[in-house]
C-alpha cells in the first residue's frame, strides 16, 4: 500500500460487510422453490399440487426478500484540473446542487454538515462529512428520506499532466428486492447512474464552466411518439427545475486559453 492510502480505509468498510448469509439464504429459497415447482408440475397428483404451491411460495420469497445488502459502486473519471481545485470545489457544500444530480438547493450548512432539498422540492436530505484529507480524500454520509448512502472521492494525479483521476465510491444501504433492483436498473434510476451523471456534471463544470443542455431549445410538434422518446432518453426533466447549470470557477487554465 502506498503512503497516500487513506488512514480510514473505505475499501475495508466495504469488504467488512458479510453478505454471505443473505445470499446463501436466498439461493436456498430459490433452489427449493424451483425443485418444488418442477417436481410438483411433473407429478400433478395429490402430492404434486401442494409441492407446486409450496415451491411457488419459496420462489416468491426468494424474489421479494429484502436483503439488507450493501451495494458497492465504484466509478472513475479524469478531470483536466488539479487535485486541489477539485477538492476545494467538492468540499464546498454550496457547489453541490451544481453537480449532484437531483439536488436543488442547500438549505443550511455548517462546516461539517449540510441540509438540502432535491427532486423539485419533493425530497429532503442531509449529509455529513466523515473524513477529509485536503487534495486527496473526502468521505461523507447522506440520508435521503429513509435511505442512507456513504460516499467517498479519492483523488490521484493522472499521468503526464492530464489532470486528476477521481475515484468515486458509493455504498448504497437501501434494502432491495430482486424485483426492485431490476426495475431501478431498467429505468436508469440507479445509484450507479446517479453517481455517473454527478461525476460527469462536475467534470463539465470544472473543465467547460457549464453543464451542456438542450432543455428549453425550440422544437417542432413532438406527437405521442416524440414525447415517449423524450421520457425514455430522460430529456426535458430539467426544463421545469431551472437548476443553475453554470458557475464561474476561478480557473487559470480557462483564463489562459
Amino acid at each position: 500500500m502506498s503512503a497516500r492510502t487513506p488512514s480510514i480505509d473505505f475499501e475495508q468498510s466495504l469488504d467488512s460487510v458479510d453478505q454471505t448469509t443473505s445470499t446463501v439464504g436466498r439461493a436456498a429459497y430459490a433452489i427449493a422453490g424451483l425443485s418444488g415447482v418442477l417436481y410438483g408440475a411433473w407429478r400433478r397428483d395429490r402430492l404434486g399440487w401442494p409441492l407446486l404451491l409450496g415451491g411457488g411460495y419459496f420462489l416468491y420469497r426468494a424474489a421479494v426478500q429484502k436483503i439488507p445488502q450493501e451495494n458497492s459502486i465504484r466509478l472513475a473519471q479524469t478531470v483536466n484540473r488539479s487535485a486541489d481545485e477539485i477538492y476545494s470545489f467538492w468540499r464546498d457544500f454550496q457547489n453541490w446542487p451544481l453537480f449532484m444530480d437531483g439536488m436543488d438547493r442547500v438549505q443550511s450548512a455548517d462546516s461539517m454538515t449540510v441540509a438540502w432539498t432535491g427532486e423539485n422540492g419533493s425530497i429532503d436530505g442531509e449529509s455529513a462529512i466523515l473524513e477529509e484529507q485536503p487534495g486527496q480524500l473526502l468521505r461523507w454520509i447522506s440520508r435521503v428520506e429513509n435511505d442512507e448512502y456513504e460516499a467517498a472521492i479519492e483523488l490521484r494525479p493522472a499521468p503526464s499532466n492530464r489532470g486528476t483521476e477521481i475515484y468515486f465510491h458509493l455504498l448504497d444501504r437501501k434494502p432491495q428486492t430482486v424485483v426492485s433492483q431490476i426495475l431501478r436498473r431498467a429505468t436508469g434510476d440507479s445509484m450507479e447512474q446517479w453517481g455517473r451523471e454527478s461525476l460527469r456534471a462536475l467534470k463539465q463544470l470544472m473543465e467547460a464552466g457549464e453543464v451542456p443542455t438542450t432543455d428549453g431549445q425550440p422544437h417542432g410538434s413532438r406527437g405521442a411518439k416524440g414525447k415517449i422518446e423524450r421520457a425514455v432518453f430522460r430529456e426535458g426533466v430539467e426544463e421545469k427545475k431551472r437548476r443553475p447549470r453554470a458557475t464561474r470557477i476561478p480557473n487559470q487554465k480557462l483564463a489562459a486559453s
Binding site: 425550440p218 413532438r222 416524440g226 422518446e229
Partner: peptide, 8 residues
Amino acid sequence: PTLEPGDI
C-alpha cells in the same frame, strides 16, 4: 437511431 419527431 435516437431521432425524435419534432427535431430540427
